[in-house]
Design a protein around this nucleic acid. Structure first.
Length: 577
DNA sequence: CGGTGAACGTA
DNA sequence: CGTACGTTCACCGA
């Protein structure tokens, strides 16, 4: 089915725009609508994906979808190299803060109508007769109150409705674009970058992280013993691990090591009196009583046994020896990418198990001192920007303050994160003298956070601080205020660093694909690219160039230098540090 | 059965 | 421990 569209809605997002809208999952045989120019094609999903693949190859349009999950998944699954996108859900999160970004919420926010009136999906509950939301026209995508119809999932079972659904996405995207452009010049660019990151997240899930299964099994065996072949063996292995701790405390062998209260009691009985049993609290007692050392060793191995053990390996490493988890492009307050199934918190001892596959290498790159360099950009402090010319930024800062490098580093970190402990006091005074613009930005962010006011990152993303707002009046809880201040200091730096990182990752993805390279891990300031061995040097060079390009675009010509440590390795553990 | 806090892995 | 997130466990209250 091909129909003509009135072109009145087209043209506000710059470039050649195409829209892909897909039947929600679980709503019968999947169909899709593809809008491009003045044409619309609606049909079975596979056919529309083919048409979209041809369009990608011939025009590389700016794809608009309600979300990457909803719109880009079929293309990513089909291996279509999506280049440009406007992701309505990601744009909504950037523009309004928060995580929830259903089509109905995005539509309402873009149209400036109250979010608390967004109709919920029908539950089939009898009480729905009592709801006072006006019934929607059977063929209209909006209800009589101007919201997207709440029963859209049901309504979209009819493929004839998909065109209107796609047009609604486009209308929302155009309104978001205008709102973003009116807010700041950078925010539009941030939406484009986050939209690309959302596609990258789907590819990270699709492609997975290459694993050396045999080596990983060896590492697990070293930590928690050989793979158990029965429940009984697993229980015996667990008892043996517990026994190694409990034999140090005769008479208290019944202590449940997994119960912190019982552990604390057990420690008290041997003369170790601690407020809690956290690692850094117990560390000083390692030599006081042998049970403490045994307990901390037990905890490390127990972590591997429960979280990163054989069950984890079997569940998340596929038959193609790839570790897979779901990724999100921009979660919560920090604005960083997140990943599930251990991709973001794999213990260092397991890293030798992450290995490039046959004929391939890893190009690993991590950003050096990204946070203070980001501070130089977002604050526009010329003196601090000058310090970023050094490979080691803390060296010129220390020279300027007349202190040791270590002191300068602690002071800068304290300013960015609101750290209170340690001897950063004097050096902090020096920082305020030497870099008043940067320090003022941080203090103003902290003050806004203490007042519970929303912040914006350098890229324009809204950071709500309201989630910390208690019922108590402002200023009633000093500890809470201080926590909000630290959160705010941190959020504008980590959030901006995350924006630069994603721009870099998206650029690497785009510029190394033709060499057969895949971005397989994104870890806040570190990238792992899986590449054919014969292209290793070229991929590494492009990773470095991508940083220069992304940083120049992101920082808008600010005289701030970013540096990457890039190396070609076989195993993740081959990286230095 | 769902929510919460302790604990700990990563940056 | 300065912040953030994901995972697992035991406990609590229904």
């Amino acid at each position: 089915m091909v129909t003509d569209l009135a072109p009145t809605l087209l043209g506000m997002i710059p470039g050649d725009v195409a829209v892909l809208a897909v039947t929600p999952s679980g709503a019968g045989a999947p169909h899709a609508a593809l809008l491009h120019g003045v044409g619309c094609r609606v049909g079975p999903l596979a056919e529309v994906v083919e048409a979209a693949a041809r369009l990608q190859a011939s025009r590389s349009p700016r794809w608009v979808w309600w979300s990457a999950e909803a719109g880009a998944s079929p293309l990513v699954d089909a291996g279509v190299p999506v280049a440009r996108a406007w992701d309505v859900a990601e744009a909504h999160r950037l523009l309004n803060g928060g995580w929830s970004a259903t089509a109905g919420e995005c539509w309402a926010a873009a149209h400036g109508i109250p979010l608390d009136g967004v109709p919920a999906a029908p539950t089939g509950d009898l009480f729905e007769f009592a709801a006072d939301t006006p019934a929607a026209d059977p063929d209209s995508v909006v209800d009589r109150a101007g919201y997207l119809r709440g029963d859209a999932d049901q309504w979209l079972r009819d493929p004839a409705h998909l065109q209107a659904w796609a047009q609604a996405a486009l209308e929302t995207a155009h309104l978001q674009h205008d709102a973003a452009a009116a807010t700041s010049v950078r925010l539009v660019g941030t939406v484009l970058s986050e939209s690309a990151a959302a596609v990258l997240c789907l590819e990270l899930w699709r492609d997975g992280l290459p694993i050396d299964r045999a080596r990983t099994e060896q590492l697990l065996a070293a930590a928690v013993g050989p793979r158990p072949t029965s429940d009984a063996e697993e229980a015996a292995s667990r008892r043996a691990r517990d026994e190694a701790v409990l034999r140090h405390v005769p008479g208290r062998e019944s202590t449940d090591l997994r119960n912190p209260a019982q552990v604390r009691e057990m420690l008290l009985a041997v003369g170790v009196d601690v407020p809690n049993t956290r690692k850094w609290v117990l560390e000083p007692y390692r030599t006081v009583h042998p049970v403490v050392d045994a307990l901390l060793t037990w905890r490390r191995d127990e972590r591997i046994a429960t979280t990163y053990g054989y069950r984890w390996l079997d569940a998340h490493v596929g038959p193609d020896d790839r570790l897979r988890g779901r990724w999100t492009a921009c979660d919560g307050a920090a604005g960083r990418m997140t990943a599930e199934n251990g991709l973001h918190n794999l213990p260092a001892v397991l890293r030798p198990g992450v290995a490039a596959h046959q004929g391939h290498v890893f190009v690993r790159a991590d950003l050096g001192q990204i946070e203070p360099r980001v501070l130089a950009v977002v604050s526009g402090d010329p003196a601090f920007a000058a310090a970023t010319r050094a490979d080691d930024l803390y060296a010129p800062v220390a020279a300027r303050l007349g202190v040791e490098r270590a002191v300068a580093k602690i002071a800068v970190l304290a300013a960015m994160y609101g750290q209170r402990s340690g001897a950063a006091g004097e050096a902090l005074k020096g920082l305020e003298q030497a870099y008043p613009v940067a320090m003022d930005l941080l203090e103003r962010a902290a003050a806004a956070g203490r007042r519970g006011e929303p912040l914006r990152t350098y890229g324009g993303r809204v950071i709500p601080t309201g989630r910390f707002l208690a019922a108590s009046p402002v200023g009633a809880d000093l500890a809470l205020d201080a926590a909000r201040g630290r959160f705010a200091r941190n959020a504008i730096i980590q959030g901006a660093a995350a924006e630069l990182f994603k721009a870099w990752a998206a650029t690497v993805r785009a510029t190394t694909r033709d060499l057969g390279a895949q971005v397989v891990l994104c870890l806040h300031d570190e990238l792992l690219v899986h590449a054919p061995a014969e292209h290793a040097a070229e991929v590494a060079a492009r990773v470095d160039r991508a940083l220069d390009d992304a940083a120049r675009r992101w920082a808008g010509g600010a005289p701030v230098r970013f540096v990457a440590d890039t190396s070609v390795i076989a195993r993740w553990s081959d990286a230095k540090e």
